[in-house]
Design a protein around this nucleic acid. Structure first.
Lengths: 338, 338
DNA sequence: TTGTATGCGTTATCAT
DNA sequence: ATGATAACGCATACAA
């Protein structure tokens, strides 16, 4: 034995079974081989507890069955949920997930792309915030929520329709004057279409609206000031708010209550994302739910599909509305989806 | 050129630079080499946009700089947070994370261990629920929250102290009779020590207590029945509840309020884990906070430390109490930790 | 059908 | 100090 404590190799199995190396390889890969040989090899494999070395396989095949996921973190619920479903979609196809938490750091994102390429991953799925991200053409790439040029498919929820749906819901629920609250990057990404969709929805329902938009890093105090500016004798002129995320909706509900307003009786609030308590309990607020499992499937499908022909530049998946206690709603609206 | 569209190799770089293969390897690995050679090689690398193939490196070195994480999912906040910090701890050390979501499926867990070994990962970190999990000795393994034998280090929060702390807090906050609510596996894992710690704390403070314990899968109705059994004329005999997780605490608060009781005025509730809204906002309830970043660091440190000598069988890390609105509390108790 | 030999990209051990 | 070459574990084209 040339090797001491390391894992057994095909060579060891071949010696143990008294057959040739190639025969072992065939058995391992399910290529037909003489019955008696197969049995001997399988016994040797069991005896030595042999496992194929997928690194050596990858070296041969120039394929690693590994996909890198560039995502800010897995700590915020939307990202954690997305990572979970992407992982499931990959594992279902016998692919593995290399997790790269970028913390939205642009330099970090670029660095991890290099790392992913050194790892010879078969593809990269990226939810990034770096507008100048360089991703060479050699490697399949699918972007989430941000278009990165015609050659890179982008997968997103139908954010425009989601904004529109929020406006229509607020109209249906009796709102007379509403507001749109947004905080986020100035980047030209898909979620920013929520605003346009909301405006469109308000206009089509003749619902008066106002907007309060601040950028990442700015103080949330702006929202409080906005609300105070619209108060007359302890009553708010606005009876519905669409927030660009559930996180902002949560903040807004707290703020409203602190100002002595009741949610949803005085002001109804709708968020976006479909975040639940503990990942699987109640919705945190009434919300536009992103179809995360479908997003994940679509990303993986687009990434792994061989035919380079049909790579759509942008895929938008339908969103739904879910009641979560911050709107006036009939109880039958319950939703048990994942 | 023997290859057409594939990535350039060291051989290509050597040809481009007009040097030998070994020289390129040395440059790449920072081994001293003649100045003029180094420059030529570096230029060729830049020109061809060469990247080392870490699969080939791994094949040579029998080391992959990859660690597998076996975790139920990244969708529930505690798991997502843990995965995030473990990933950070690994990336800091130039290691990569192979994410394996098990969904707590025992067969799946065993299968992924095989997969991890085929991937020749340098180690496995596992948060598993399979008492019969077979993990051979060839590969370093660190377990979270469950002891798997003397040879496998287990990292956990100090769950006993956490239970004790919860009892003491409730006593300090004026509770006269308290209850312990638990739902979970019957498995002999570390979090189960929360119960013993709580009992210990109650006894040391002469605080009367009762317990309601149900197993995974059983109906939560038991908790409602328990509470109803302890109601006299709309008042509850119990004025404090320690719940084994924040998730259960959330449920319990909802239940109490449905029964017409105020939280925290009538009944104070403490949970366990330290879950926050959206991963970084408010605590969902008053809670015993697990030191997740420290847990992650400890796991990685233990896993990667070369000296097999000092492998402690069990490491318990200190927990803290955080106010989260479901206890009576002075406002100075705020906590901004991560 | 089974065995043999070569190459994948890298590192390390040799001579030079 | 640099260049040639073997070896890592596996797959496969080819020879037997």
């Amino acid at each position: 034995m040339k090797r001491d404590n390391s894992a057994p190799t095909m060579k060891d199995v071949a010696r143990e079974a008294g057959v040739a190396l190639g025969t072992v390889s065939k058995v391992v890969n399910g290529i037909p081989v003489g019955e008696s040989y197969r049995i001997r090899v399988e016994e040797a494999i069991k005896k030595l507890n042999y496992q194929v070395n997928s690194y050596a396989q990858g070296l041969k095949a120039n394929k690693t069955y590994t996909v890198a996921l560039l995502i800010p973190n897995t700590r915020e619920p939307f990202f954690g949920l997305l990572a979970y479903h992407i992982n499931l979609a990959l594992l279902k196809r016998k692919y593995r997930l290399l997790l790269l938490s970028t913390d939205s750091d642009m330099a970090q994102e670029q660095e991890y792309i290099t790392m992913a390429k050194q790892n010879k991953v078969d593809g990269i799925i990226g939810l990034t915030y770096n507008p100048d991200l360089v991703v060479e053409e050699g490697i399949p790439f699918v972007s989430i929520d941000r278009s990165m040029g015609a050659k890179i498919p982008c997968v997103a929820s139908d954010n425009f329709a989601g904004g529109q749906l929020a406006a229509e819901k607020l109209a249906d629920l009796g709102c007379k004057k509403v507001a749109f609250f947004r905080v986020g990057s100035v980047l030209n990404n898909e979620p920013n279409k929520r605003k346009a969709g909301f405006e469109n929805g308000c206009l089509s329902r003749s619902l008066p609206y106002e907007m309060k938009i601040i950028n990442t890093g700015e103080s949330y105090d702006e929202f409080e000031r906005f609300l105070l500016d619209h108060m007359r004798d302890g009553k708010l002129e606005i009876d519905g708010v669409f927030c660009v995320t559930d996180g902002l909706a949560y903040f807004t509900c707290k703020l409203l209550r602190r100002l002595g307003l009741r949610v949803p009786e005085d002001v109804q609030v709708i968020g976006f994302d479909g975040i639940r308590y503990f990942g699987n309990a109640d919705y945190i607020c009434s919300t536009i739910v992103q179809p995360v499992p479908d997003l994940a499937e679509m990303c993986v499908e687009l990434l792994l599909q061989e035919s380079m022909s049909a790579k759509p530049p942008l895929v938008c998946l339908p969103v739904t509305y879910a009641y979560g206690g911050t709107t006036l709603e009939s109880p039958e609206e319950e939703d048990k989806g994942e």
